[in-house]
């Protein structure tokens, strides 16, 4: 649930390598710990990404340890790789517009069909709050990374609720105008 979707795995691995050279297996574990609790990476995903990075000259192999198979290789970041990470961090993400969000669709449809806006709101608030409670619980027991990720989600959920509340209030106003 706390996974940040749409995140570039390549950039994440590059970022992890920036601190110190690592084995592929290490990288996968670090990644899972920080970003992938709900959706751990497959080994295949890791090695295909690493070979893409190698091909682009963003990382290089540090040599193979004794008895080495493919998973005994250590990788390190190149200067080009560091530049790439910097560029990535410095580029703003395109603000997501939730216009196509299902929630929006649902509310608008419900209202258009003459259902009570407050009911929709209440149902949705209960669901949202339930989710937010879980996140809060998780946040309180988790480490800093958990807190950051959960907060991110919490703020988004809160934004949904706020929007819903405002919409409901607007509709009340509107209803008042229609039926004096």
């Amino acid at each position: 649930m706390c996974t940040v979707l749409g995140m570039s795995i390549g950039h994440a691995l590059l970022g992890l390598l920036e601190k110190e050279p690592r084995h592929g297996y290490d990288l996968k574990r670090s990644y899972d710990e920080r970003f992938g609790k709900d959706r751990p990476l497959h080994y295949g995903q890791v090695y295909s990404t690493l070979s893409r990075l190698l091909r682009n000259g963003l990382i290089e192999e540090l040599g193979v340890e004794s008895g080495g198979g493919p998973d005994r290789k250590r990788y390190t970041i190149t200067d080009a790789g560091v530049t790439d990470v910097e560029q990535w961090l410095g580029t703003p993400e395109k603000p997501d517009l939730y216009l196509q969000n299902t929630l929006y669709t649902k509310v608008v449809l419900a209202l258009l069909s003459g259902r009570d806006a407050a009911d929709v709101l209440d149902t949705q608030r209960a669901a949202h709050l339930r989710a937010m409670r879980e996140l809060t619980e998780r946040k309180r027991s988790g480490d800093l990374a958990d807190q950051l990720i959960c907060d991110h989600a919490l703020f988004h959920l809160e934004a949904d609720l706020r929007w819903l509340e405002l919409t409901a209030a607007r509709l009340d106003d509107l209803a008042g105008k229609v039926r004096p």
């Binding site: 407050a118 009911d119 209440d122 149902t123 949705q124 608030r125 209960a126 669901a127 949202h128 709050l129 339930r130 937010m132 409670r133 996140l135 809060t136 919490l154 703020f155 959920l157 809160e158 609720l161 706020r162």
Partner: peptide, 26 residues
């Protein structure tokens, strides 16, 4: 009135125009 603060609760009650509403989703 802040959902994030309300998330610390075990359950919620909503007041609108002086009336409490049943927690529908629950």
């Amino acid at each position: 009135h802040e959902p994030r603060v309300a998330a610390y609760s075990d359950y919620e009650v909503v007041v609108r125009d002086g009336k409490t509403r049943a927690a529908v989703g629950a």
